[in-house]
Design a protein around this nucleic acid. Structure first.
Lengths: 199, 199
DNA sequence: ACAAAAAGTGCACGAGCGTGCGTATTCTAA
DNA sequence: TTAGAATACGCACGCTCGTGCACTTTTTGT
């Protein structure tokens, strides 16, 4: 029972790398089998069906993301330092660590945003969870803490900047992408710090 | 020779609607044929190969986008009013007019951002062209006009907000999505108006 | 060490894919 | 109105897809 989990991990990892480039739906069992060195049915047996594989890939991506971005941030002091750390690590994730084609979850989020099913449900829950995780970190940027509307707005802004960064960096090959993203982020932080009592 | 162009248009339009939901690669000739009421080969003959279809879909989307967002904006006075108009129409486009699954070009931009080929080349050129179109409209928001770096930064910000809006609206079903997007946009405009000489 | 369980293989299936080709139909211009 | 071109169809091809099943090999607990 131990060996199975190991190879399953390798399968999911490899599938995630491929999905980051082509998207989840475009990753075939054959491709994975060749990459991992198994037979097609050997790969298939680890999952009841294709959907299960997709979910497993996304779950593994979330775990890896949290381990690389969120967990290490807990050692950083709350407030601006921690948030900045998270943002920078998040950009790293999108740039390289998420996979050769960026972040599999972002790719899937666009791919499935209008396709009902378990994948979309998972992605919805994932984003909401992450927003609830990020919110408190933003909230405590000021004293007194920011009101919920401003927190939601900032979460939206930050997520948008990360998405914009991905496109600028991956599709447009813009070497300035990181500067643009951090520029937008820094401006947001400053804005929040300066007007804590604004509407 | 006239009839052909008409049906080709119908094919491309229908394929675009499908691509906005599932992505370009997931649209099969069979699906298009059924939707348009042609045979599979009848559809195929209008394009040398699948790639040509993909390009045609994107070109048509660009035309429609420009006709719905950019062209009507030319009647609005330059500066803040026109830019605001463009942004609002852009959100409309992402929300409904681009297709049942949003904007086919955005979907494709994520789908192909790491897949070399003519589709990616087209998308790159498209984004750069749009950025060059948008730039001058931002530049003249202030007097004296904004320096290039601030213009690039604002273009990045705005594009990011639109992407963020798409995700918030489509994947997360957030009824506040539009408020968040316009909120971010308004804040950007105000920021630019207030500090015209900043770094 | 051995039996039970787990993991992986090989093969075949039905379906769907893009594409090519010969033929039929429909449009268009003289 | 009729020849010729444009358009669409039907069919078949080679290939890949996800999935199912019977089988063999490997791992694991006792």
């Amino acid at each position: 029972m131990r060996k199975g989990e190991a190879t399953r991990g390798r399968i999911v990892s490899e599938a995630g790398r491929m999905a980051s480039v082509r998207g989840l739906a475009a990753v075939s069992l054959n491709d994975i089998a060749e990459a991992v060195g198994l037979s097609k049915s050997g790969v298939f047996k680890h999952f009841g069906d294709k959907d299960e594989l997709h979910l497993a890939v996304l779950e593994a991506s979330v775990d890896r993301f949290l381990a690389l971005v969120w967990t290490p941030s807990l050692k950083i002091p709350t407030g601006k330092p921690r948030l900045k750390f998270i943002f920078e690590r998040w950009l790293d994730w999108v740039e390289t660590e998420g996979g050769p084609g960026g972040c599999p979850m972002m790719q899937a989020s666009v791919e499935y945003d209008d396709q009902p099913g378990r994948v979309r449900d998972f992605l919805q829950a994932m984003h909401r969870r992450w927003a609830r995780t990020l919110g408190p970190e933003i909230r405590v940027l000021t004293s007194p803490p920011l009101p919920p509307e401003q927190v939601d707005q900032a979460v939206f802004d930050i997520k948008s900047y990360v998405m914009g960064f991905g496109q600028q960096r991956r599709l447009l090959d813009d070497v300035q992408a990181r500067r643009l993203a951090t520029g937008a982020f820094e401006a947001l932080i400053e804005r929040l710090s300066l007007e804590p009592a604004a509407a």
